[in-house]
Design a protein around this nucleic acid. Structure first.
Lengths: 142, 142
DNA sequence: CAGCATCCGGTTCGATACTG
DNA sequence: CAGTATCGAACCGGATGCTG
């Protein structure tokens, strides 16, 4: 364990920190790490996108959740919403400076996962296998 | 993005993958970014901790959610669970190699948030203020 | 096209009680 | 101490219908 990590951790403990329930950072952290927010931030890293583009790109997201999540990210100042006053409506979303910072960090996490996904899935299989073996053991002894 | 090796290798498989519903990376991403998992990973960065220690440290987590989240992180291979066969029970949790990698990236996100929390909260206030002004406007025109 | 309002099923979550 | 079991409550998230 490198000492700078420990240092940053202890530093955080001296102030109000995310591990404490009342800390506002925890709320923001949840906004960012919510189911769709992560994917939105990740998606917007390569530039501006329209609502419908995001909807197509992020498979499985519903209209409602997309708009809801975009709003909470906009509220936190991570996303800029540009509505062109035309008919039919044309709205674009892009990351703010803050949004880019957060997005980069999210992307590092996502990238790491994608690189290591095989390992992780294998681990998952080993785990469930071990579990079911245990189940059988206790059945035998019963 | 410094991962040009991977980019050339599998641009549409690696980077775009998590945006696709069926991709297993998305499930893992959700395990990691779930409400308590982020805080657990962050907490374990400074070393091994017992169940009760984590419970005390991560304010607001229930017994059930802590044990549940620890299990899913263990299944994904991010956490090692060491149960000492003594009475009363003594169980310790620590990050695996993978867990440290993920934890570091999570910590970078958390740290950034804590540093910028004031800005973010201000943005939030401005947003809700703008919202309520709009509400008043539309009331007036009605 | 973008997005809000409403309803509603499913999952998550927490409190409590209990076990090894 | 470190969990599991159970049971409501709360919340999430999707489908539908409607607006500008």
């Amino acid at each position: 364990m490198s000492s700078d990590i420990r240092a940053s951790l202890t530093d955080k403990f001296s102030r109000g920190n995310v591990l404490v329930k009342e800390c506002p950072s925890r709320g923001v952290l949840q906004d960012i790490t919510s189911r769709w927010a992560v994917l939105i931030l990740f998606s917007l890293l390569d530039g501006t996108h329209r609502f419908s583009e995001l909807r197509k790109r992020i498979t499985g997201v519903s209209e409602k959740m997309l708009s809801q999540t975009l709003q909470s990210l906009e509220a936190d100042g991570f996303i800029l919403r540009i509505a062109h006053p035309v008919i039919p409506p044309h709205v674009e979303y892009q990351l703010t400076e803050h949004g880019i910072e957060v997005g980069k960090r999210v992307a590092e996490l996502v990238d790491w996962i994608e690189v290591n996904i095989e390992d992780i899935l294998q681990s998952k299989n080993r785990y469930t296998l071990a579990k079911s073996n245990k189940m059988n053991d206790s059945e035998r002894s019963a």
